[in-house]
Design a protein around this nucleic acid. Structure first.
Lengths: 222, 222
DNA sequence: ACAAAAGTGTTTTCATTACACCCATGG
DNA sequence: CCATGGGTGTAATGAAAACACTTTTGT
């Protein structure tokens, strides 16, 4: 390793969920410099002998009490000067969780955690704003040709809820009949008993036959 | 940076081109341990104050004499144990070059460089086989919804040449008339004088109006 | 009875597919 | 004159888009 300067490597995670009518991102408040008091993506340094994805999941659990998520590698950020402490390369990951499944609470680090709308986040530490934009662009792209959007829903859900996920992320309304026709024709859903939701007509419930992300030719056009 | 173990970061590049009827990848022969004598992707350690993409391009030039390519970040590999020398995280990049535009020759490092078919590469050092597979999968995917394939052609080319690019990477034949109809309908090409190619009827030449990669809704179905 | 969300089919439009022959050139 | 790749159009099929009203429930 002649000549090779050591570098610090971190893994940060962009955790997103839907709350109400908006896509939100999970942030933690930094309790030490640099950027003390600013909000930042959860994440931290890779430990000796620890895989990158393992780091991402560990930091997420330590800082926010969230475990057991499906994370996907997003992009790696390594411009010199992006961290005032020195050369830091960050491997960013992305994760989605079902609405309400996750109540942010201080993890073992006891730092403040909170959800923020992705379209108007608070000022962020480091280049985390850029990381967030990258995640959002990637999510929108993947939504239209994979089943990632499914992760934003609980085990059982209605077709209207699924449609809302697509509408919020793509930022446009979709035709109800065409949406239902398309989704049902894929044969990915298992129907269940209808359930009363609120003070309206009960809705047919569905679950996904498989939990894995699948690539679908032309799912929903962006 | 308490607790944070330093890590070594490298950038490797998967350079691909079409030669004859096959997609090829550029490899260099390692002249020192580990994996001395084995073929490997060009790449090397990030230097102090050097951006990741800059590293990729510098190593490529030093090791193969190739400059001025368009590279795109592919994926980051960081499993512990993937490099026997220690903890090494590799940010992999991907690049495409036009057939024949690049004659591999020893760079300043004076190592052997050569093209190999991507479907049957020689035994590779480290986890470079996995990196190569990742690049191939990504290229195939991107080919069907972006204009990346264009980079595998010279400034001026025929529609048959463009079609051959798609056929080789997708691994299936395409209908000539439908292909031409589709491509021309996109309005991305500028026609030029026909040129005699070989001992056949001269072919209409085209160039791309823009060199940048564009996302096209349904370009060519994989 | 009304407010709120669930549910349901048909027609039009457009893109994709399948398919076969003549043309121009060099040797 | 022949081998080789260049070039062209139409009909059938299937997917996506546009579009409005009835149903069920809680209050």
């Amino acid at each position: 390793m002649r000549r090779a300067p050591p570098v610090f490597v971190t893994c940060d995670v962009v955790v997103m969920t839907i709350r109400g009518r908006e896509l939100n991102v999970l942030l933690i408040r930094r309790d030490r410099p640099p950027f003390r008091g600013r909000w930042a993506l959860p994440g931290g340094f890779v430990e000796a002998g620890e895989g990158l994805q393992v780091t991402a999941l560990r930091e997420l659990r330590e800082e926010t009490g969230v475990g057991n998520l499906f994370v996907e590698q997003l992009y790696t950020f390594g411009d010199p000067g992006r961290d005032p402490r020195g050369r830091v390369v960050t491997v960013a990951y992305m994760a989605l969780v079902a609405e309400g499944r996750l109540r942010p609470r201080p993890g073992s680090d006891a730092r403040a955690t909170a959800w923020f709308p992705v379209r108007r986040p608070p000022p962020l530490a480091f280049d985390h704003r850029e990381i967030l934009e990258t995640a959002l662009a990637r999510l929108r792209a993947k939504l239209s040709y994979t089943t990632v959007g499914f992760q934003l829903l609980p085990e059982r859900f209605t077709l209207s809820e699924l449609q809302r996920v697509y509408e919020i992320i793509l930022g446009k309304t979709l035709d109800k009949r065409n949406f239902r026709k398309k989704i049902l024709s894929l044969g990915l859903l298992r129907p269940h008993q209808a359930e009363a939701r609120g003070r309206h007509r009960p809705a047919q419930m569905y679950s996904f036959k498989v939990r894995e992300i699948m690539i679908i030719d032309g799912l929903i056009r962006a």
